[in-house]
Amino acid sequence: MDNLGIVFALLGAVLAALMSGIGSAIGVGMGGEAAAGVCTDDPSKFGKVLILQLLPGTQGIYGLLIAFITLSQIGILGGSGDISLAKGLLYLAGCLPMAFVGYWSALKQAKSAVSGISLVAKRPDQSGKAIIFAAMVETYAILALLVSILAITGIGGLNI
């Protein structure tokens, strides 16, 4: 029971990287399918559709960042791994915003990016707008990233 703190904390770090990574992988895959469809008939649109394809990939990076910060905070990357159960659960809770919002926002952003790719296929001059539509979803991934960072960096100073 004494070691459960580190187990929960590690679970949080893994979930943040895992779920955001899965969401991004699915999202970038969907974008890639659509981008390939457009480029089959018009390879000149590669540059424009590539940006849209990559947009859902950022959540995976945010998840990775949260996982790194958590691992360094809990001492797995060096230092003492002695964490109370309460702190371990707090680290887990702190990672969850990035894990869940990262996963869902990547999927939703992918749908938006695929629609944007369709828009670029028909009206390449509107690619800026297509990118903005998809980028709007990023706001919520960034908010979740901020909450997770603030929570994880703040937990270390708590005396519990």
Binding site: E33, A34, G37, V38, T40, V114, I117, S118
Partner: peptide
């Protein structure tokens, strides 16, 4: 997804 995007181009 691929097919629909290709149709968009067509």
């Amino acid at each position: 997804i691929y097919a629909a995007a290709r149709i968009r181009a067509k």
